[in-house]
Design a protein around this nucleic acid. Structure first.
Length: 927
RNA sequence: GGGUGAAUAGCUCAGCUGGUAGAGCGUCGCCCUUACAAGGCGAAUGUCGGGGGUUCGAGCCCCUCUUCACCCACCA
């Protein structure tokens, strides 16, 4: 083995072997364990969120696979309608053309080509993460089988009346020319204006203070062109007399009524609200109540259409706004302009301001679907982890709105609906089916609906669609419902909720038993990673490393604003002056696990990943040590427990503790605790103590062969078990090392992946042995403390004198001489019966036993005095605290006796130690 | 407006049913000791956001305030 761990060298080959040998496919006859990948966008590339998400899933799958489950991790990708279409449209634009010019068929060809080209990027990257996805079953949301499921669902819902077509206001994206759902609209607070306009009263009416006009306030002046009323509150004294009167709508040559509606808040603005039913959701409601006409004034691009006054026609909505304000000002109808903060709705993909727009769209009636979906969570059939997300889910589901599922795009599942000349709707898989189903005469002309379905409509079918539904396949029977869905909170509504609804509806089963909800991966400062901030980390770069220049280029490329690019350049140089070194997949994954605590957002810390890269190196080198000491011997399992050293038994016992902790923590999805347990055990116990404790045995020429074999066996078998313990987290390094460990232990099996997970075994847990080695550790620690504090070189062997203590101390001392000599680097050990004879020395306590390192020629008295003084101070502070507590009568009276006794004991032990140290200090002072 | 989460060492985070505050990174010493300098050994570091309360005892429970983040909602 190389001296230094090189992730690159080992990650390359293993993944290919695993995949080629079919190890990712469900194995054996065990119970099913299923995870469905949240399908990434087929043309996307891996980001930190994917990295995190898939690391978690892989750990779960590998763990369960090793525990004997027939584990299926179903992989696949999503066609991602809007996102993908946008990318291809951008490419066309760069080539000087557009989709309209190309036409639908040609355009779709282009998209498919692009999908074929780039679709492997994300799956290749998922492989780099070590994801043990069953690629033989990879699905795509637009492959024929899955499309069949989509079609089936649409038609059945339509036939049941749960999908309908409606003409109403939708969120319209003027750039993408499509409707989008409520969820795809993000409202951010922006600074805008409040414009106050005068609407002249008709027929000589005046306001209370005699003005011939009323004043309305608006944040959207251009919608004035579509106003069909002005509303006031029915109880508003100021305007009551005007209800039923009319106003002249400026610039429009129309008169509109003043109506009364409780929707109006008299306190807000002027108390008079312009009502534009065709361009505002609230106004629409008001309009419905008062039977107001709807005047649509916008084109699909967001320009003024033929319903607007000629002057403004074809003007963009924002251009029109400016012009209209100028015109009103000229006309003396602009009262004032105030700055105003308002929520501006924008499309999550396009970023443009969304318009409420009157169109025909397809909707899913969600109420009846939501009910059982709510119940499934209420009943605990589906559980969210952490549980608090259930409230979020309930809140949304209980107030769910009908879902607009049609999109005016080309890329996606085309809606299986046909229209005749009268616009009558026929829903069936194909035109021929439609004719048959509805018994249409041959001469009836049918045209298919131009629209496609919302991507999330198909995603909602993911858990059962991927398993072959509507066919009742063996896989569907065996692997559905799935076990756990691992996902970010950001798509609970988009995806999780809709999956639950659709899956219950069409399979009668829940889609998954557990929803593990995790947070977002942010940068070290807690900022969202985004291209424009230039703080994006690419998981692949963390694995492979990246040169500074390449990183800079990546971060500043295609940046619209040069100042921004400059800033990013500077920040990047500062954070990564030498680029990013390679850390390897295992280290990256381990970092994700270690940060995966209670479902909150994760700040990605470079310090962490370096630490875990070092951990990999530690494992690597520990293995080297073990192999170095074992490979030239035939190592066999010892016949008798008696052959094992105390250290051998100790590490076996400690391994059990770690294993238990790991099992418990995985069961509650606390991967941070899993990572911590494995790290602590391997580094702080196995490496720091056990490996050191093995040396005196292995290097002792007098030790018998049985003892040496037992230690070698323990070294190897604990290593081998630790590798299996850690394998779900760090698949590559564990596999690489395991191969050799298995060989030396005569374990057959081609891969660690398919080995059983370590079994808990209480028979090797020994409290006595643990206490004994704990004693050794304490003595060693005491001696090391003296050495460290007094700056005695680690190379210098020192004498140690022991005294006081219990018979057990004395027994252990004899028993573990060699351990102490090796670990504390002692030149001699002496037991002193009369402490009066003790030479001037530095002293430490282990329990009641006094440990002395004679000062003569070794150390400087001042340093020892300082050490003692420090210790005394600390003890004094501690005893003062305990003393105060014990002086409190109510504590003594009310606290459990055990607690009180413990405190008493502590106090007396403090006092004893304190006295000793003080004597020691005086003694030294005389030197 | 409603809701959720967070605030613990310089940084990133743990801290189970209330009973002596932990890890990693960083810092400071001493060391290339035959697995590992991506390492070993030792050390320092906290009025657990503020205030109140319950309790013998609060990082943890209750109230309140402050700050930050996020989610939902139609305020023109």
């Amino acid at each position: 083995m190389d001296k230094t761990y090189d992730p690159h060298a080992i990650e390359r080959t293993w993944y290919r072997k695993w995949e080629e040998n079919g190890y990712f496919q469900p194995q054996g006859e065990g119970p099913a364990y299923t995870i469905m990948i949240p399908p990434p966008n087929v043309t996307g590339s891996l980001h930190m969120g994917h990295g995190f998400n898939n690391s978690i899933m892989d750990a779960l799958i590998r763990y369960h696979r090793m525990r004997g489950y027939s584990a299926l991790w179903q992989g696949g990708t999503d066609h991602a309608g809007i996102a993908t279409q946008m990318v291809v449209e951008r490419q066309l634009q760069a080539a000087g053309t557009n989709r309209k010019e190309l036409g639908r068929d040609k355009f779709l060809e282009k998209v498919w080509t692009w999908k074929e080209e780039s679709g492997s990027t994300i799956t290749r990257q998922l492989r780099r993460l070590g994801s043990s996805i069953d690629w033989t079953r990879e699905r795509f949301t637009m492959d024929p089988g899955f499309s069949k499921a989509v079609e089936e669902v649409f038609i059945r819902l339509y036939d049941e009346g749960l999908i309908y077509r409606g003409n109403r206001l939708v969120n319209w994206d003027c750039k993408l020319h499509t409707a989008i759902s409520d969820l795809e609209v993000v409202s951010e607070e922006e600074t805008g204006n409040f414009w106050y306009f005068r609407y002249p009263l008709v027929g000589g009416a005046t306001t209370q203070d005699g003005k011939p006009y009323i004043v309305i306030a608006t944040t959207r002046p251009e919608t004035l062109l579509g106003d069909t009323a002005v509303a006031v509150h029915p109880d508003d004294e100021r305007f009551r007399h005007l209800i039923g009167q009319k106003v002249d709508l400026p610039m429009c040559n129309r008169q509109i009524p003043i109506i009364a509606d409780t929707y109006v808040d008299p306190e807000f603005g002027t108390g008079c609200v312009k009502i534009t039913p065709a361009h505002d959701f609230n106004d629409y409601e008001v309009g419905q109540r008062h039977k107001l006409p709807l005047i649509n004034i916008l084109t699909k691009d967001g320009a003024i259409n033929e319903n607007g006054p000629e002057k403004y026609r074809d003007m963009d909505r924002f251009e029109c706004r400016k012009q209209l304000v100028r015109d009103l000002e000229t006309a003396g109808l602009l009262e004032k302009i105030e700055p105003h903060k308002l929520k501006v709705p924008r499309g999550d993909r396009s970023g443009v301001v969304i318009e409420p727009y009157l169109t025909n769209q397809w909707y899913v009636a969600t109420k009846s679907l939501a009910e059982p979906a709510i119940k499934a969570v209420e009943d605990g059939q589906i559980q969210f982890v952490p549980k608090q997300w259930e409230n979020t889910y309930f809140a949304w589901m209980r107030d769910i709105q009908d879902w607009c599922i049609s999109r005016q795009l080309w890329w996606g599942h085309r809606i299986p609906a046909w229209y005749d000349a009268q616009g009558k709707i026929y829903v069936a898989p194909t035109e021929a089916d439609a004719r048959a189903k509805y018994r249409l005469a041959d001469d009836v002309q049918l045209t298919q609906d131009e629209d496609v379905l919302d991507t999330w409509f198909s995603s909602a079918l993911w858990t059962f669609g991927t398993l072959g539904w509507p066919e009742q396949t063996e896989y569907l029977k065996k692997f559905h419902p799935t076990d756990v869905l691992v996902t970010g909170f950001d798509i609970i509504f988009f995806w999780v909720a809709r999956m639950i609804m659709m899956t219950l509806k069409f399979t009668g089963q829940i889609p998954f038993r557990t929803v593990y909800v995790h947070g977002l991966i942010r940068d070290a400062e807690g900022q969202k990673m985004s291209k424009s901030k230039g703080n994006v980390l690419d998981p692949i770069d963390l694995i492979d490393g990246i040169e500074l220049d390449t990183l800079l280029k990546k971060r500043t490329d295609s940046m619209m604003q040069p100042q921004l690019a400059q800033k990013i350049d500077k920040a990047t140089r500062k954070q990564f002056p030498d680029g990013i070194p390679a850390h390897g997949t295992d280290a990256l994954r381990y970092t994700f696990y270690s940060l995966a605590s209670t479902g909150r957002d994760i700040n990605f810390d470079m310090g962490r990943i370096e630490g875990y890269r070092n951990f990999c190196n530690k494992i690597w080198n520990a293995a080297r040590y073990v192999f170095m000491n074992c490979e030239e011997h035939k190592v066999t399992k010892p016949e008798r427990r008696h052959d094992y050293s105390r250290a051998d038994l100790w590490i076996q016992s400690r391994f059990q503790a770690a294993l238990k902790k790991v099992n418990e923590s995985i069961a509650i999805y606390r991967f941070d605790l899993v990572a911590q347990a494995v790290y602590d055990f391997f580094w702080n116990e196995y490496c720091d103590w056990y490996l050191e404790l093995s040396k005196p045995v292995l290097w002792d020429e007098k030790a018998n062969d049985e003892a040496k074999n037992a230690t070698r066996y323990t070294l190897l078998s604990i290593l081998e078990q630790s590798l299996r313990l850690a394998h779900p987290l760090m698949p590559f390094i564990t596999e690489e090392i395991w191969q050799k460990a298995a060989q030396l232990l005569d374990i057959t099996g081609a891969t660690i992946m398919l080995q059983p997970y370590p079994e808990e075994d209480s028979s090797v847990v020994s409290i006595d042995v643990e206490a004994e080695i704990e004693w050794v550790k304490n003595v060693v620690l005491a001696l090391r403390n003296i050495r460290g504090e007094l700056n005695i070189s680690p190379a210098k062997a020192i004498p140690a004198i022991f005294s006081k203590g219990t018979p057990l101390d004395r027994h252990f001392l004899e028993q573990h001489r060699v351990y102490l000599i090796k670990l504390a680097k002692l030149e001699s050990i002496e037991w002193l019966t009369d402490t009066a004879l003790a030479p001037p020395a530095s002293m430490q306590l282990s329990g009641d036993m006094e440990i002395r390192v004679p000062l003569a020629g070794l150390i400087d008295v001042k340093a020892e005095q300082a050490r003692l003084a420090k210790e005394i101070d600390r003890l004094k502070a501690d005893s003062a605290k305990v003393e105060a507590q014990l002086a409190n009568e109510r504590f003594v009276a009310n606290a459990p006796p055990a607690v009180v006794a413990k405190e008493r004991e502590r106090l007396s032990s403090f006092a004893g130690t304190l006295q000793l140290l003080q004597e020691q200090l005086e003694k030294i002072a005389t030197l």
